[in-house]
């Protein structure tokens, strides 16, 4: 079977006062229905990778290589075609939920706006049903309260789940989660892990999960890409990476992960 997303030899360079090679010949693929973990420490190029898939990089970044999504090379797409892809085909869950909602509009308004603008659902009544469904999938049961609240009235966990609901409401084929839990408590983190698993198992979402926490990878992912200083160090099944890391960097990662636990 053809993979859903293929990333071939992606290089990203920031051109500025000093040149900075953020990614160097990164290649991997994502199969339909799997959770692919991308692990790396800060500065390894994780976020750059996430944004380069949808070409959301700042102007100073120069991207080389090709990204193939559902058989078409999206790196060659024009802006308006990419715009269509964003949200509808590929959804991004950002790191900080508080920063990704506009503080002056209620969550429901922004949710509604997204569905309307993206043309996902034309009818107002249907949109309401759709929103409720999506929120329920994201483990938010008190739908009316969430929709009528302003971002500052909700906790970080609720906001992040509302964000996830917003993203999955468009039923994208691919979800990119960029450290969705790193600003949240362990209690909420644990809950989100199970939510992601349910999204995959029950609704067949394909997820790229970006994190710096090996524990999350262990709990959540099927395959892992280890990113270090912009290069792919290792790519394998979760079990084999944690049990028998081959690369030096992966080894040190596993060692420090074990050390925290003891």
């Amino acid at each position: 079977m053809k993979p859903l997303l293929e990333v071939k030899d992606i290089s990203v360079e920031y051109v500025g006062e000093k040149r900075n090679q953020a990614l160097e010949k990164v290649s991997f693929d994502v199969k339909s229905g799997e959770i692919l973990g991308i692990i790396g420490e800060s500065g390894s190029g994780k976020t750059t990778l996430a944004y380069s898939i949808l070409n959301l990089l700042p102007e100073s970044a120069k991207l080389k290589g090709s990204i193939i999504f559902k058989g078409s090379i999206i790196t060659e797409f024009k802006e308006n075609k990419l715009c269509y892809l964003r949200g509808k085909e590929i959804g991004i869950i950002p790191q900080d939920p508080a920063a990704s909602f506009n503080p002056v509009f209620s969550v429901g308004y922004q949710f509604n706006e997204f569905l309307k603008v993206k043309g996902i659902c034309k009818d107002a009544e249907e949109r309401l049903v759709l929103m409720e469904e999506a929120l329920n999938k994201a483990c938010l049961w008190d739908v009316n309260k969430i929709l009528n609240s302003y971002p500052h009235q909700l906790s970080g966990g609720q906001l992040q789940r509302a964000m996830i609901a917003l993203v999955i409401a468009a039923k994208p084929s691919l979800l990119i989660a960029d450290e969705p839990t790193s600003s949240l408590d362990v209690t909420i983190e644990s809950q989100l892990v199970h939510m992601f698993l349910r999204l995959r198992d029950e609704m067949g979402f394909t997820i790229i999960f970006i994190t710096h926490n090996l524990g999350l990878i262990e709990a959540l992912c099927d395959r892992v890409v280890v990113l270090y200083q912009g290069q792919v160090k290792e790519m394998a099944d979760k079990a084999s990476i944690i049990a028998a890391p081959r690369d030096e960097y992966t080894k040190s990662l596993v060692v420090s992960f074990r050390e925290v636990g003891e």
């Binding site: 483990c139 906790s155 966990g157 609720q158 362990v186 209690t187 909420i188 983190e189 644990s190 809950q191 892990v193 199970h194 524990g215 999350l216 709990a219 959540l220």
Partner: peptide, 16 residues
């Protein structure tokens, strides 16, 4: 107990 479970990502549901 709940916190310890959460650290292992075992805790599934946790009302706000």
């Amino acid at each position: 107990k709940l916190l310890l479970d959460a650290c292992e990502y075992k805790m599934k549901d946790y009302p706000a």
